[in-house]
Amino acid sequence: MMRRLWITLTYIVFALLLIAPLVKIFTGSWADGLNGFVEAITRPQSLHALMMTAIIVVVVTALNTIFGVMLALYLVRAEWISPRMKRLLNSLVDLPFAVSPVIGGLMIVLILGPNTVIGAMFEDAGFKIVYALPGMILATLFVTFPLMVREVMPVLQEIGAQQEEAASTLGAYSWYTFWKVTWPSIRWGVIYGVVLTVARSLGEFGAVLVVSGNIMNKTQTATTLVYQDVENFNVVAANGIALVLAAFSVGLLLLMEWAKKRKEVH
């Protein structure tokens, strides 16, 4: 009896937390009818912000996939890294999980901002990092970095090095071995990591806000635009952008479920 009650209560809490806002966003964005919604997302600043988000998602996902898989391979397989060094790197990977994204963004400003030595050097070379796209990509990369490594490492550990060693005794070098032997085993883990990275970089707010300065039509992303619209009491527009983001998230969620199933099968 008590258990029933608890389960029901949990469902109600989840419904309130997840479904209610979604419904609210949906109705909110249609408050002025279809025209209001279309207008909200076709404003120049909306299109620009969505494009910025798209660029960040694509670049960050690509970089995170390549470097995440590489680091996972090194941390699990490389013999030339001493065990102590591996432990250190391993705990460094988790740093973004432990540090608030806002602090992460702040660290980038403090190290690479226009008033720092390194930042000034880049600026002189005509390459702006903070308050520009590169800084925003860097900040998002910082926040999403553990996702891929943490997905791929356990898979590599589980399959062990023996299949790869067998391939090497059969004459295959590392590149061939990676694509023919390692990749088929880790690909579902990688796909899962990609989905997580896309979802995270799509919704990242804190780190990007600090690094970008949130300049309209320049360094504004979809999430920081929603924030600004809310600040300006432009609720319909805020809901419109939020709905677009939410639609992507639901799509990703479905993709994630599918990838997870495949991951378990293979």
């Binding site: 023996q162 299949q163 060693e165 088929p184």
Partner: peptide, 9 residues
């Protein structure tokens, strides 16, 4: 190998 290490895919 002891546990054969066949390419499982």
């Amino acid at each position: 190998f002891q546990n054969y290490a066949l390419f499982k895919h």
